[in-house]
Write a protein that binds this DNA or RNA. Structure first.
Lengths: 119, 119
DNA sequence: CAAAAACTTAGCCATATGGGTAACTAAATG
DNA sequence: CATTTAGTTACCCATATGGCTAAGTTTTTG
């Protein structure tokens, strides 16, 4: 362990996805793309920020698989891929289910205990 | 704009929440807490990592409102608050709904166009 | 073909993040 | 009461992140 082979910065898909969502600018971009594909400049317009800075956000969204981009002449068109959000939803749903299950088991247990107490 | 008043590191709730979820260790902690409250050390055990490092993750989860902690003697008990995950779910659901709506409108449009073509 | 438009590349900067050690405090325990 | 146990505090370190400017490149356009 003398050398840390640590190339560690959340490279798994879910982490990339949640990280992509953890920024208002990027969420706004996703929001904007829900209406359909748009060029980078159109997306950037509302975001008082230099283009290169904005581009990094686009790259992150692309890196997380949330969008793809293709070049059409000098314009780079961004297209949303909402399916990519699915793994985040799934993770949250599974958590919710497990929690509900826990509460159910708790209720069942309390029920059973109440029964025993009666007898 | 000479001075950047930029105290900017995603301080909004949603960003804090998504950021909290963007790390495997923290997601594992949430997972572990779905069974019920646990002390820090119990949570840390599976995570080959020094305690102080692990504590930072706990702090982040607490900062995002995902868990609360209380001290019981020398032990710090961590408790999950799954409701806190709701805003993330809501954001994703709203995105999904808007996307579905878009597809519906597209279908309607194609339908209408087909009708016109027939006449 | 000159100029504008739409990125791109390259580099800089401050702060945040994820990890670590060392040393300390406070509560249980033998 | 001496020792463990369970955190906690106070740093340090490398890399990532989010922003910037300056200087390209490649298409359009006038």
């Amino acid at each position: 362990m003398l050398l840390s082979l640590m190339a560690n910065t959340q490279h798994d898909t879910l982490s990339l996805l949640f990280a992509a969502l953890a920024d208002p600018t990027r969420r706004a971009v996703i929001d904007a793309l829900l209406d359909g594909p748009k060029p980078v400049s159109a997306l950037a317009a509302p975001h008082d920020m230099a283009l290169p800075s904005f581009l990094k956000h686009v790259d992150r969204l692309e890196g997380a698989g949330v969008i793809t981009t293709r070049k059409d002449g000098r314009v780079r068109l961004c297209q949303l891929h909402p399916e990519a959000l699915g793994s985040a939803e799934q993770w949250l749903n599974r958590a919710r289910d497990r929690w509900a299950g826990k509460l159910d088991r708790l209720a069942a247990h309390l029920d059973a205990t109440a029964q025993e107490t009666k007898q």
